[in-house]
């Protein structure tokens, strides 16, 4: 029974998400095309003969009527063709594969840091509400939230990179490691493990620590707030009162009954925060010169490469939507009340 209803839920959810994808894609298209200025001219950086501009416009189909362009754009994305950049003629699929892997590595470890720090501090603060532990935990939460990720990154670079000299402050691996590492998944961390190349793994881990911790800490602020409020709310619930009335010790009430239920909404927030994390990743990658997709986005923005920018934005949109479906599915799996 459960299997069927869960599958129905998933199918309904995916059907519902299609209009959202469509709207997002349309918004991106409209924004990029309706914007003032000639995108091709801008990306070529002026001083280019009109004929050359016309030729590239023709190649990219920019001279066709808007609705034809729109149709082609949707059709290309449906086939998984995100185009080729104007400035350096790189297919976007390659950017997604190579730089996307670097972003995935960074965000994955950052998310782990955020969840561990956020859940721990949030639980403690909520459990000991209005004690100095709570005040300290909340203040820590506000402080990490208030710190721009690039500022925290800069300070981390200064302290751990420049003054103490413990950790590298830029790139994903040393040039030598990167050159010698065999490519399996494009995710350096996994590639090193697959080959059992432990010296490379150590080098990669060292490069990962500062960016991942920086991004993770800044994201943790949201978790702290949420977990704390949830613990407080759960501890006020009737079933907790009932457990207390049955004479169960406060310790067991808190640890066995309250904490688990307080953590269920965290799944949703992990998903919602992916958007936040992606935004933060753009900044973290720029600070640490991390060759991720956000870093590429910034470079292509600087070069005013419309095709590249559009492709990366579309990719981000698809990732965000996919994660929201995944999160809803997980939630439905954990909490049967949610299913339609």
């Amino acid at each position: 029974m459960t299997g069927t209803s869960l599958r129905t839920y998933l199918i309904t959810r995916i059907a519902l998400v299609l209009p959202m994808v469509f709207i997002l894609l349309t918004l991106v298209f409209l924004l990029m095309r309706v914007a003032p200025g000639n995108p091709i001219e801008a990306s070529l950086g002026g001083h280019v003969p009109q004929s050359a501009i016309k030729q590239i416009e023709h190649q990219l189909g920019f001279d066709k009527p808007l609705y034809t362009q729109y149709g082609n754009y949707l059709w290309d994305i449906a086939r998984g063709n995100f185009g080729t950049t104007i400035t350096d003629n790189r297919p976007l699929s390659q950017i997604i594969k190579q730089n996307g892997a670097a972003t995935l590595e960074l965000t994955f470890f950052a998310m782990i840091v955020a969840i561990v720090v956020g859940v721990f501090v949030g639980l403690v603060a909520g459990r000991f509400r209005d004690t100095w532990l709570d005040v300290g935990g909340r203040f820590f939460g506000i402080l990490v939230y208030a710190t721009p990720v690039f500022f925290l990154g800069l300070m981390a670079q200064l302290v751990f990179g420049v003054w103490l000299g413990w950790l590298p402050i830029s790139d994903q691996a040393s040039p030598l490691t990167a050159a010698l590492l065999k490519t399996h998944t494009n995710i350096y961390f996994l590639d090193a493990i697959i080959d059992g190349n432990w010296s490379a793994l150590w080098d990669i881990t060292k490069h990962l620590i500062l960016p991942a911790t920086t991004l993770g800490l800044v994201t943790a602020g949201v978790f702290i707030r949420l977990v704390r409020v949830n613990v407080i709310r759960t501890l006020r619930d009737d079933y907790i009162e009932a457990a207390r009335a049955r004479g169960i010790t406060e310790r067991r009430v808190v640890y066995n009954h309250a904490f688990k239920n307080a953590l269920v909404p965290v799944i949703t927030v992990v998903g919602l925060n992916l958007a936040l994390l992606l935004g933060g990743a753009v900044l973290t990658e720029t600070t640490f010169n991390w060759p991720g997709i956000g870093h590429e986005l910034v470079l292509y923005l600087e070069n005013r490469d419309y095709v590249a920018v559009q492709g990366i934005i579309v990719l981000f949109a698809l990732v965000v939507v996919a994660v929201s479906v995944l999160v809803d599915f997980l939630n439905a799996y954990v909490d049967p009340r949610i299913r339609y």
Partner: peptide
């Protein structure tokens, strides 16, 4: 909802990028 799901830093970057041309 579509806009809300999107990282707002990216929305802001794209808008600023497009406007900086104007």
């Amino acid at each position: 909802d579509a806009l809300f799901a999107f990282p707002y830093l990216l929305i802001a970057i794209v808008i600023a990028f497009l406007l900086s041309n104007s």
